[in-house]
Simulated assay, not measured.
Amino acid sequence: MEKEYIVAKDGSGDFTKVQAAIDAVACGNDQPVTIRIKKGVYKEVVTIPAEKSFIKLVGEDREETVITYDNYAGMLDANGEKIGTFRSPSVFIDGSNVTASNLTFENTFFQPGFDAMGRQAVALSTTGEGNTFINCSFKGYQDTLYAQSGSCYFLNCYLEGDVDYIFGAAHAVFENCQLHSLDRGSKTENGYVTAASTKASDAYGFLFINCTLTADETMAPNSVYLGRPWHPSMRMEPVCAATVFMHCELGAHIREDGWTNMHDAYPETERLYEYENTGAGCQINEKRRQLTAKEVQHCTKQGVLGW
């Protein structure tokens, strides 16, 4: 019989904190464990370690079941050192075959400004293999979702932010998702949806299928890039960012040139493509390269993720 725990802030379940329920799961477990989370705002940093897999996080209601925190890259730790982007997530999922549904993952830290250092604040970081997110929300500003490594699938999810709010080197498929860009108040540069750091040796990176790209009502048209390539300074092997937007509806906020550089990494030398997109933000020009029908044959969940 599948083991099940209930988390409820009012004390009516087995635990009042999400992390306490995860701590109760045995290391090396090979059978599914379901953690049902009642409505409430759970302000805590949550970690599913690599040695714990097959965990199901099931929220009672997506909008009313929220795991949140407000750590950020420029925050100082006990030693007076900045914690950096990689220690800022509200939730770390390092285990594999983890499924989350009907939940909101959030980082509430906000610092205005276009070039403000240290404002990176991750809502969720995932590194495991075979992780799935269904009907979940990911809310933040800069670096909201860190699909760091491994493989992950997002179905019917909502993701919002302003700068690089979907980033990392994972094999990740986003299907029927809403990607919502928040207004930074610029007339021309309001941010970037993606910042893939795919290994050059990997055939695939991020794939967006049947997604809708929206923006705040105040957003200036032609002011948000689809993405830019991220080559981490501490990378251990060559990087060649891979991102495809396929059958997506692009709002008027998407820039006509589509992609831009990050430092010395330029779109022309990366794998940044589109295929049969629609909407006011859809353009076909030399800056926005299109795949052919033959080239997209493997642009499927199974093709990218292998499962």
Score class of each variant (00 low, 15 high):
residue 87 R to I: 05
residue 48 I to H: 09
residue 201 S to P: 08
residue 199 K to N: 10
residue 253 H to M: 10
residue 41 V to K: 12
residue 187 K to A: 10
residue 299 C to R: 14
residue 71 N to Y: 04
residue 266 Y to I: 09
residue 287 K to A: 05
residue 76 L to C: 00
residue 92 F to Y: 15
residue 161 G to R: 11
residue 68 T to M: 09
residue 136 C to T: 11
residue 281 G to C: 00
residue 70 D to F: 07
residue 131 N to E: 09
residue 3 K to P: 01
residue 142 Q to H: 13
residue 112 P to W: 04
residue 112 P to Y: 06
residue 89 P to S: 03
residue 27 C to A: 14
residue 1 M to A: 08
residue 73 A to F: 01
residue 10 D to M: 01
residue 221 P to T: 13
residue 302 Q to T: 15
residue 69 Y to Q: 14
residue 141 Y to M: 02
residue 182 L to R: 15
residue 110 F to Q: 06
residue 260 T to Y: 03
residue 31 Q to G: 02
residue 63 E to P: 00
residue 279 G to N: 09
residue 247 H to N: 15
residue 38 K to I: 00
residue 241 A to W: 07
residue 52 K to G: 04
residue 274 E to N: 11
residue 203 A to H: 11
residue 101 S to L: 01
residue 252 A to M: 08
residue 257 D to C: 04
residue 64 E to F: 00
residue 154 F to L: 09
residue 12 S to C: 00
residue 138 F to L: 12
residue 65 T to N: 05
residue 220 A to R: 12
residue 245 F to G: 00
residue 98 V to F: 00
residue 177 C to L: 10
residue 239 V to P: 00
residue 298 H to N: 12
residue 208 F to W: 11
residue 206 F to Q: 11
residue 266 Y to F: 12
residue 56 K to S: 04
residue 300 T to G: 03
residue 111 Q to M: 04
residue 24 A to H: 06
residue 299 C to K: 14
residue 265 A to T: 13
residue 293 A to P: 02
